[in-house]
Design a protein around this nucleic acid. Structure first.
Lengths: 202, 202
DNA sequence: TCGGCAATGTTTACAGCGATAACATGGCGA
DNA sequence: TCGCCATGTTATCGCTGTAAACATTGCCGA
């Protein structure tokens, strides 16, 4: 997951005043921290501590905490996109590929709850235009296009867009409900909800 | 929205050392604050300030911040349930009532973004059993049962459960995606996604 | 080779946060 | 009337994100 193959072993080497590749180290530390902490329990200071560096050093590489978190989101988005591409390829495309991508989406959310929540939760009050956001949004756009391409061919473009959005809503809603424990995180349940979703429509 | 008709005008009266009904006042202040703040920008201290009381007074009525927030969630859940009941009644039940309930769900989320997010986001790391949570979960259970009752009659119980969960996923996912600005918060779009959701199945 | 500048670390400081402990007030029943 | 106790208060703690000032070092031009 989101390995930065270069610049490993940093923590073991005795480093001098300068770190070498602190930015990558911070991102890696952040991803590690995300695995065990709740989203609002992820503190800039702890990430810095984990990277063996003072808290304010972070500000040499990110304007503020949110920027650091956004960098983590971008890593997550890349991961998710890779997984989905693989799932699609393995299923051989078509409808079964479509379902596989959906299942991958939900399973990724369950496997990386905090990261997923971070990825999908907008900076909230900031009315930033979508284009200004990180590349994860771009990844989603690509995903949307892929989904739309699987809509029934006889449908109009608007109908295809609705079809795609509904598909996204199903997996996103299911993922969120399971993350928030409103619904048991049952693998069979994922299959049931996601798979038959395409039955009634195509 | 979530009016506590009793104990109004508290802030205008000159109160003595004791408040009278601080608990209600805190809940009301919290709901007011939720209207303008992002979820993680809602601080216990500011709610207390808004109620004209010291921060630690809150602890006489709630064990911790989370408990106060849960009280806000319960108010929100009541509101949502009321709105959905009204929508169902006005639409005259049946499929159009079903759709109306779904639309109400999404519109409530858009109208009360922070409150909705608070309601639907579990205390995260706490593995609390669902039964131990606030009444909002109960409200959701009722909702689920209502939805399930509208599933195709020839379906098995398990199929009905999946049908209900998929319906919930659609509206929940759509609400979340719109809240997080992944998708434009367009009223017509809500109608399109929610309404035709029942077309392919029943 | 040397001097200095820019990049990138550090320490210090501040205001706001949730939470605890100790203290103050005052309503109400014995 | 007295005293209990529910419900307020202030003081304090450790944590947070962030800004400002200072320290160190790699690198580039003279």
């Amino acid at each position: 997951m989101a390995s930065n193959a270069n610049s490993v072993n940093i923590e073991s080497e005795k480093r001098g005043y300068h770190h070498g590749d602190l930015r990558s180290a911070l991102v890696q530390a952040g991803l590690d921290l995300l695995k065990t902490r709740a989203p609002d329990a992820v503190s800039l200071r702890e990430i810095a501590r984990m990277a063996g560096v003072s808290a304010t050093a972070v500000y040499r590489h990110f304007p503020d905490k949110q920027a650091l978190l956004s960098a983590l989101c971008d890593e997550g988005a890349e991961d998710l996109a890779r997984l989905q591409q693989a799932a699609m390829a393995q299923a051989g495309g078509g409808r079964s590929g479509f379902d596989a991508v959906g299942r991958t989406y939900v399973r990724f959310a369950l496997a990386n709850p905090t990261l997923f929540r971070l990825m999908m939760t907008a900076p909230v009050d900031s009315c930033a235009p979508l284009a200004a956001l990180g590349q994860d949004v771009l990844a989603k756009k690509i995903l949307m296009d892929n989904i739309a391409a699987l809509a029934p061919v006889e449908a109009s473009q608007a109908e295809q867009r609705v079809f795609a959005l509904r598909a996204w809503s199903i997996v996103h809603g299911l993922a969120m409900l399971m993350l928030d424990r409103q619904v048991p995180a049952d693998d069979a349940l994922i299959d049931a909800v996601v798979t038959s979703a395409s039955v009634g429509v195509g």
